[in-house]
Design a protein around this nucleic acid. Structure first.
Length: 630
DNA sequence: GCTCCTTTGAAGCGT
DNA sequence: ACGCTTCAAAGGAGC
């Protein structure tokens, strides 16, 4: 696993990437080669940290976290945000025990696996320990009120820190809950974390006795007390230990991983995605009372949301009747499954988890509906995340994989691959990429967006695609190591992520509420540089403006708000509006060969190259480009 | 009704 | 070991 600057761990890197005051960014950039550091390595280190920490105690997530950084702009911003949020929500959603959270995680109120039910005593105890402000008595008035409040569209529970990027659209959050799903569930369930209590022999849940190995029918031994309540088991030990979730399944007939016979497009409970802490995130998927009807069971006997049987719609009902009937139908179901070939989906990776969590927020903030556009925004935000924040999702993803491995020891991604290959599907990607490489269309960033670059996003973005295998000497280091292309990141970051006024790079703090995308009314007066996200400034060549089609074309690039609003207008982001976009730089085009876009982009073919091929070029804040607009 | 789009990351397959 | 490809989520759009 690549290490940064001498194998520093996350914590060390955390210091290295510390969120500096904006004023010192520029000189840091110039004097420190870390500005060009390998983002892939950063991410790798995140994963590495996640893996290396997997054996660490999981019951004290806060303790594992690095101590609060020295107060910085970002911290101040966050603190103020959190304080504001606390004031707003009355403390219901307490800030995670984790300094530097840019937002307050809200439990997924809609997980279908969280029917209105009471927390188990152990779970409640755990809540009391980790979430003193969430000490809600199960089924009590307080919990009901909390649920009601949490469901309420009141901005007190929705807005606040979530809108720090879109203060101008603050009100939008009032319209749409942070997380919207068809099923409303107990809001606190996501906060229920695994506790050793659940697996301690001396303190098994009442239903633990029913924990029987689904394969062998032999009751499983109690969970070893020394086993982490998460997923501490190595894959090799899978199957030799009791499944940490096994005790959940028989209890109420509602699988934690809600399996239905129907095409379940939401296989993994989104409870995982919105959390109050990382530890609670994953565990939230397996609350004891969240066992949906056993419409289908995996061979392991443990239902899993990742299991999808095609061509059958999901039954949303969680009635007890269905639960009772489920046992009778099990045999028939199994037979059906054999026919239908149960589809176990892949575990979500870090970014997918992030997307699931943040999608609703982006939808609410941007009034976007197109997933493609939303994903682009999320992709940029993902890059803008701090290492800490990303690490959270890497950790979650790791646990997801471990859980998945435990649930389906024999499963392989190849299964899905093969299944689809047999069916039909997908070849286009390869064809498309080939076509793109032939056209050699250039990735051309729009500096003002968190939306897609102006040109076709499907254009080659990475060194591999850009230079080809025969020009690997032109590749960036990460690409050579099969890591994330830093040039692509730089280019994309500079395009998509708004820079701070000082030109800070990765280290730059996220947008403060005041610097977030302004409302349509305020965007005019707001310096665009303040609308940009942290990654944006990466090594923008000073001469780039000269090559920038935006400048060549004349019209200024649209602002983030403009673009997002344009996307919200119902068209593909960037398809309308001013500047180069109107010159045919239609993003997300399904026609890779979009002529005008290509022709406009082609002059800048060396744009992204210039970032890296001319490393001596003094990085220049992208803001210089965008400022000229005004 | 199926596929595409769009993102990142994980993993499988082929060389 | 490396490169390429697919799949995971999401939902509107297009065919």
């Amino acid at each position: 696993m690549p290490q940064l600057n001498g194998g520093d761990d996350l914590g060390a890197n955390d210091e290295m990437i510390s969120f500096k005051d904006e004023g010192e960014q520029e000189e840091k950039i110039s004097e420190n080669s870390s500005a060009e550091r390998d983002l892939a390595d950063v991410k790798s280190s995140l994963v590495n940290e996640s893996e290396t920490n997997q054996n660490s105690s999981s019951d004290s997530e806060a303790e594992r976290r690095p101590p609060p950084r020295s107060e910085t702009f970002r911290d101040k911003t966050r603190e103020s945000l959190e304080e504001a949020a606390k004031r707003q929500d009355g403390g219901l959603f307490k800030s995670p025990p984790y300094p530097g959270y840019p937002f307050i995680m809200i439990p997924d109120l809609t997980s279908p696996y969280l029917p209105n039910g009471s927390l188990s005593p152990t779970a409640r105890t755990y809540l009391q320990m980790k979430w003193p402000l969430l000490d809600v008595q199960p089924g009590g008035l307080q919990s009901r009120q909390a649920l009601k409040d949490a469901r309420s569209p009141s901005p007190a529970h929705i807005v606040g820190p979530f809108c720090w990027e879109f203060p101008g659209q603050f009100h939008l959050s009032n319209k749409v809950p942070v997380v919207q799903h068809p099923h409303h569930v107990h809001p606190l369930t996501p906060l229920i974390t695994y506790s050793n209590e659940h697996f301690t022999p001396g303190n098994p849940p009442p239903h633990l006795q029913t924990d029987v190995d689904p394969k062998t029918g032999i009751p499983r031994p109690p969970h070893p007390p020394d086993i982490s309540p998460y997923y501490p088991l190595s894959p090799g030990t899978v199957g030799q230990i009791p499944h940490p979730l096994g005790w959940l399944v028989p209890q109420q007939g509602q699988p934690v991983y809600p399996i239905t016979t129907g095409g379940f497009r939401h296989p993994y409970p989104t409870a995982l995605t919105v959390n109050a802490s990382m530890s609670s995130l994953l565990s939230s998927r397996f609350p004891p009372h969240m066992v949906p009807p056993h419409h289908s069971l995996h061979t392991t006997g443990i239902p899993h949301p990742a299991i999808v049987t095609p061509n059958v719609k999901q039954e949303s009902s969680h009635s007890d009747i269905s639960s009772l009937n489920s046992s009778k139908q099990t045999d028939a179901k199994k037979e059906e499954e054999k026919k239908k070939q149960v589809h176990i989906k892949k575990p979500l990776n870090a970014f997918m988890l992030y997307m699931k969590e943040m999608r609703a927020k982006v939808v609410a903030e941007c009034t976007l509906k197109e997933s493609a556009a939303i994903n682009q925004i999320l992709g940029r935000r993902w890059h803008a995340l701090s290492r800490e924040e990303q690490a959270k999702y890497y950790e979650l993803a790791r646990k997801e994989r471990q859980l998945h491995m435990q649930l389906y020891p024999g499963w392989s991604a190849r299964d899905n691959y093969a299944a689809n290959q047999q069916g039909k599907r997908k070849k286009r990607k390869r064809e498309k990429q080939q076509a793109e490489s032939n056209e050699h269309r250039e990735y051309f960033p729009n500096p003002c967006l968190s939306l897609p670059p102006i040109t076709d996003l499907s254009a080659p973005k990475k060194c591999r695609a850009r230079f080809g295998l025969d020009q690997q000497n032109n590749w960036c280091g990460p690409c050579r190591r099969k890591k994330k292309c830093i040039r692509y990141i730089q280019g994309e970051g500079s395009c998509a992520s708004p820079p701070s006024t000082d030109g800070s790079l990765l280290d730059s703090p996220p947008l403060s509420p005041s610097s977030a995308v302004p409302s349509p009314s305020s965007k005019e007066s707001k310096p665009q540089t303040e609308q940009m996200q942290p990654l944006s400034l990466t090594m923008k060549p000073a001469h780039q403006p000269l090559h920038h089609p935006h400048l060549l074309a004349g019209p200024p690039p649209p602002s983030l708000a403009q673009l997002e609003n344009s996307a919200a207008a119902g068209k593909t982001p960037g398809a309308s509006h001013n500047g180069a976009l109107e010159h045919g730089d239609v993003s997300s085009s399904r026609q890779p060969g979009s002529s005008v876009a290509s022709s406009l982009a082609r002059p800048s073919a060396s744009l992204c190259h210039s970032h890296s091929l001319i490393p001596s070029t003094a990085p220049q804040p992208l803001s210089l480009v965008t400022k000229s607009i005004e």
